[in-house]
Simulated assay, not measured.
Amino acid sequence: MIGDLSSEPAPDAYERLIVDLDTAGARYRLIDHAPEGRTELVSALRGHEVAHAAKCLVVMVKIGKKQTRYVLAVVPGDARLDLEAVKRLLGGSYVSFAAKDKAEELAGSVSGTVLPISYHPRLELIADQSLLAFPELFFNAARLDRSVALATDDYLRLATPRIERITTTA
């Protein structure tokens, strides 16, 4: 599993990602581009179909009145997240996108640069099964001006996401 650096000072999310990818022998490449965090626009800058982008969304799920869980939902860039599917998977009573400040705190990076990897123990990682169709996933590397193209099988091996259907066609 990627990134257990608990005994060391916490590096920034970008540095941690690169160290983890290199340490694990992952097949990836870096892509520098103009600063952009919107999936459709950054996909064009990186030169790939929007569907090949790993769009990362932080979701809050209430379980009854007392428990709150957070999910890092990773879906293809051209797909819509099915919030109800996430709620059902966790047995929730309420679901919504997390507040921006909470999402950025849990993700360790600003909105538009969230990695498809969870480094926070309270952020559960669920990836949509349709991502498995692509040989490579593209995502901003915890910064707006640099992206990563990562082999999908290395992503699955390193990030160990829960794989479910969490997209909707509506």
Rank of each mutant, 00 (worst) to 15 (best):
T113W: 07
P76T: 03
L106S: 06
V114E: 04
V95E: 12
D20K: 03
A13R: 15
K66M: 13
P161V: 11
S43M: 14
E49N: 14
L150W: 11
E8A: 13
T160S: 14
L57T: 03
R157S: 03
H48Q: 06
L156N: 01
I126W: 12
T68D: 13
T160A: 15
I166E: 07
E84C: 03
T160M: 10
R46T: 00
S96R: 15
I18E: 05
V114H: 00
S6W: 09
A107M: 05
G3H: 08
A99P: 13
A54F: 08
G37S: 02
S118E: 07
A159V: 05
T169C: 05
A44I: 06
D22K: 14
S43T: 08
E8S: 08
S93V: 09
S118A: 15
A13V: 09
T152D: 02
T168H: 06
V114L: 14
G3C: 12
V61C: 12
P11A: 03
R27D: 13
P76Y: 11
K100M: 09
L123C: 05
L72N: 04
I117R: 08
G3Q: 08
A44F: 10
G3N: 12
K66P: 04
A170E: 11
R69F: 01
V50F: 00
L21I: 10
Q129A: 12
L106A: 05
G108K: 03
A133G: 07
E124I: 15
S111E: 12
D128T: 10
A10Q: 14
I163Q: 04
A127R: 04
L132Q: 15
V95K: 10
T23Y: 05
A103M: 06
F134N: 01
Y94W: 11
K87I: 04
L106M: 13
Y155M: 03
D128E: 10
F134Y: 15
L156T: 06
G25P: 04
A51M: 03
S93P: 09
T168E: 09
S147D: 13
I63K: 15
D153Y: 03
A149M: 11
P35H: 08
T167N: 00
V58S: 02
E84R: 14
A13D: 03
V95Q: 09
R157A: 07
L144I: 02
L21S: 01
N140Y: 02
P35C: 10
D32M: 07
S109L: 08
V110M: 11
G37I: 09
R165Y: 03
V86H: 04
R80P: 00
R27A: 12
L115H: 01
V59Y: 04
D22H: 08
A79N: 06
H120F: 07
A107D: 05
L21T: 02
R69A: 13
G91E: 04
F138E: 05
R69M: 12
V42W: 14
N140K: 01
Y14K: 02
I126T: 13
G37P: 07
V71T: 09
G77W: 09
G77H: 01
I31T: 06
P121I: 08
V19I: 15
D128A: 10
A151H: 07
D82V: 09
P11R: 11
D128S: 05
R69H: 11
L106V: 02
E164Q: 12
M60A: 14
I31L: 14
T113R: 05
A141Q: 03
H33T: 01
D22S: 10
V42H: 05
R165I: 12
S93I: 01
L30Q: 08
D145W: 02
P9C: 00
L89R: 11
D4F: 13
